[in-house]
Design a binder for these strands. Structure first.
Length: 761
RNA sequence: GCCGAGGUGGCGGAACUGGCAGACGCGUAGGUCUCAAAAACCUAUGGGACUAACAUCCCGUGAGGGUUCGAUCCCCUCCUUCGGCACCA
């Protein structure tokens, strides 16, 4: 399971994640697998600081450790088969030592770098955020509006793996939806770079539609583009500078909203189209993003709606070069025949694309190119409660990694950990921390004061579980080979473009460094849904609709809570919490207990129908477990009880039933198992096998339809021929009434299931 | 705007991916037990028509069309809810 953040309280969402996952893990163990079911704590992060700031005498570390203690007790109440010897705590120096080690490995590989870049800045949390964490221009933690700020920041080069991250998705047993979201996030675009020119300067653009190059009527350049000042002519200087100023002040949300009008201003300069030598005006326009492609767009109004809108507003020519649309009304973005395109006229746009790329490559004015939307991962944070970035800055040597023998770089326990509000983190206030010597030249040097994004900690924690107590290395090769990659990963869908993407990047990078022999961290992935409050709203303290699992355990017992969580809904769907619903599971387990307590079992062979349903139940529960359909698995266990409740069964049948029950209600099952003379423990016994032969029935219910409408059902022997079945069907009084005086035109027969008599008209 | 997943009784949800719609559970109603209640147990429970009753018939899976002997399932149009992305050239 995805390890929890130690917020202090295990809520029902944790239970929903961990409970059914434990059911699955127990099932896999009974199927004979050696199951490692670990747990840990994602212990660094902002809430600890925020909580500590509210109470003056509290340190983030103490807050976190207290919470871990509380949550450990709560987790134990779940009756999960956790291996408590392997608990991982990312805020423990014995763990973050290796997080720092990883940083250094990435740095050495050229996959970590520091650069000045406009970053997402959260004014509330007073730190920068990764793109993935600035959701719709809003901080993922506190919901504040994110602003842009130029800061010198550390990045991981996740873009180096864009293609592989995309490609690897195909192999994964993950929900299609999740894979698709990652795919969209990576955002591959196939196209070309084309070098336009301005004076002596090359002005490259990226386009997915090189076939429309003859339709370019203007250029649009991002306001932040470095060439903007020099491009701007004297008469345009004032308007351009004003425009750039305004767009700089805008928040991300304003800037990115798609439904507002496109704006821009003319720079006064003209670019040259390399394919036909035409001079076209260059505009500064804020719909062009500096961070994608080259920050310059070739404007083709006839075949791009955005360019069309822009051209309409500023009265720029619209030249149609692909047939199929009506350029008087809107841009035609589909395919068609090339027109007005010089020697390429007449080709289809698809062929034209290839021809034009070949042409520009030959003329050396461009080349085929692929672009991705994903950006490098910004990992530095100007906060206290995180793993210090293990880098030292020396005036003469530049950035130097801390020697591995000096790891970990301990996070000093300081009381003044409030954010500084500047681009330096709170660690800057600790002289002892900052001042150090350069590992290379020995001169005076300063430590990096930023800490790492907590998502760095969680990007590799699963690699630590097989050897979480190892002190001399991050992981042990033999243990890793045995346990990893993760066979089944269960957690929320909200981490799709965060943790689940970062972990894949880490895995691939470590593989390339020779530490791992696999490419993907999580072979299979399942999401649990979200449990809503009884009012169908998202649970929140302020709404007062929060369900407290501790109370439920107190009132109904762990087994009931586990069983109900499995039963209440389709696992990946979640849904509103029904306060009365849980009594159904409570009654069910109560009935199970009442039935089996002091039972005198029948001797001899089991009755046929009981035996048949037992085998059906073994099959059903097993199949459902494998596919995470816990709700119908529980339902079939209930069904079986409903059949036997007024009858007697053999001890063998009972013991088989306990095995099926064991993953859901581990405590009750153990008790019943013991009372029925079973050896400790029911949980280490093998999952029962069903017998295909015993599933088969000698008689079946045959559905009889007339013209597709159900008219009767009859018990018949299996294996009837069509003719026999028709004969039997025709004897039914109900059927007779509907076929009387009519000719049978056609008979549809599905053996042992259904017969449909089709009459004339 | 684009992409994706849904819409089934009073409620949560089932239904071999074309073959008995509503499994299982909650709730509700009636009953048993009880001085009474709670708990527990039993019975019924999609809507409607006609029945004294059994039976029988009709309608019914967001709406409308289509394909098919037969559609919750496939196709078209539309409505709607929820997730994701959001000027990516």
């Amino acid at each position: 399971v995805m390890f929890p953040y130690p917020s202090g309280d295990l809520h029902i969402g944790h239970w929903y994640n961990f409970g059914p996952a434990d059911v699955h893990a127990r099932y896999m163990r009974m199927k004979g697998r050696n199951v490692l079911f670990p747990i840990g704590f994602d212990a660094f992060g902002l809430p600890a600081e925020n909580a500590a700031m509210k109470r003056s005498n509290l340190h983030p570390s103490d807050w976190t450790q207290n919470n871990i203690k509380t949550m450990t007790v709560q987790l134990e109440h779940m009756g999960a088969m956790y291996d408590w010897d392997r608990v991982v705590d990312t805020s423990n120096p014995s763990y973050y030592k290796w997080t720092q080690w990883m940083f250094i490995q990435l740095y050495k590989k050229g996959l970590a770098y520091k650069t000045m870049a406009p970053a997402n800045w959260c004014p509330q949390c007073q730190t920068v955020l990764a793109n993935e964490q600035a959701e719709n221009g809003v901080c993922w933690r506190c919901g504040s509006e994110v602003t842009r700020k130029d800061i010198n920041q550390w990045f991981f080069k996740i873009t180096a793996y864009a293609e592989e991250l995309l490609d690897g998705l195909r192999e994964l047993d993950w929900p299609e939806k999740t894979k698709l979201m990652q795919k969209n996030w990576i955002g591959k675009s196939v196209g070309a770079r084309i070098n336009f020119t301005w004076k002596q300067e090359i002005l490259p653009v990226f386009t997915t539609r090189p076939d429309t190059i003859f339709g370019v009527t203007f250029m649009a350049i991002a306001p932040e583009h470095p060439l903007v000042p020099s491009m701007t002519t004297k008469d345009q200087k004032k308007v351009v500078e004003e425009y750039v100023q305004v767009s700089r002040k805008e928040t991300e949300t304003e800037r990115l909203s798609t439904d507002r009008e496109k704006t821009g201003v003319f720079t006064g300069s003209y670019a040259k189209n390399p394919i036909n030598g035409k001079e076209i005006p260059i505009y500064v326009a804020d719909y062009v993003l500096q961070s994608y492609g080259y920050g310059v767009v070739m404007g083709v109004p006839a075949h791009d709606q955005r360019d069309y809108d822009f051209a309409k507003k500023y009265d720029l020519p619209i030249v149609e070069v692909v047939s199929g649309g009506d350029s008087k009304k809107e841009a035609w973005e589909g395919e068609g025949k090339l027109v007005n395109s010089g020697e390429f006229t007449g080709f289809t746009s698809v062929d034209g694309r290839k021809k034009i790329i070949a042409f520009i490559e030959k003329k050396k004015i461009g080349n085929a190119e692929i672009n991705y939307r994903i950006r490098d991962w910004l990992v530095s944070r100007q906060r206290y409660w995180g793993a210090p970035i293990p880098m030292i800055h020396c005036k003469t040597c530049g950035w130097v990694p801390v020697p591995e023998s000096d790891l970990p770089v301990l996070l000093p326990r300081i009381s003044d950990f409030q954010p500084t509000g500047t681009e330096k983190g709170p660690l800057v206030k600790s002289k002892e921390f900052v001042e150090t010597s350069c590992p290379t030249c020995g001169g005076k040097a300063e430590r990096e004061t930023d800490t790492m994004d907590t998502f760095v900690d969680s990007s590799w924690y699963f690699l630590r579980y097989p050897n979480s107590n190892l002190s001399e290395a991050a992981f042990d090769e033999k243990e890793m080979k045995y346990w990893l990659p993760v066979d089944m990963y269960v957690g929320g869908a909200e981490h799709t473009v965060l943790h689940l993407l970062y972990s894949r990047f880490f895995t691939k990078a470590l593989r390339d460094m020779g530490y791992l022999s696999f490419d993907e961290p999580f072979r299979a992935l399942r999401h649990q849904g979200i449990i809503l409050g009884p009012d169908r709203q998202k649970m929140s303290k302020s709404r007062g609709n929060v369900i407290n699992p501790d109370e439920l355990v107190e009132n109904f017992g762990t087994d009931t809570v586990r069983t109900y969580l499995c039963f209440m809904s389709q696992y990946d769907q979640g849904g509103p919490w029904d306060p009365q619903g849980i009594s159904g599971s409570y009654r069910f387990l109560g009935r199970v207990y009442m039935y089996f307590e002091n039972r005198k079992y029948s001797s001899g062979l089991e009755e046929k129908d009981v035996e048949r349903l037992l085998h059906k139940t073994i099959k059903k529960v097993g199949d459902d477990m494998a596919s995470f359909k816990f709700n119908t698995a529980v339902a079939s266990l209930m069904e079986f009880l409903n059949l036997i409740v007024k009858r007697n069964i053999t001890k063998e049948t009972a013991r088989t039933y306990f095995l099926l029950l064991a993953p859901f209600a581990p405590h009750l099952a153990e008790e019943l198992w013991k009372n029925a003379g079973g050896q400790f423990s029911v949980h280490t016994k093998m999952w029962p096998e069903y017998d295909e032969k015993k599933l088969q029935e000698g008689e079946k219910e045959l559905v009889i339809q007339v013209n597709g409408k159900l008219r009767d059902t009859l018990q018949v022997k299996v294996g009837l021929t069509k003719e026999q079945a028709q004969k039997i069907a025709s004897l039914s009084e109900r059927v007779k009434a509907h076929i009387q005086g009519k000719k049978i035109r056609k008979v549809i027969y599905i053996p042992d299931t259904l017969i449909n008599l089709v009459t004339e008209d």
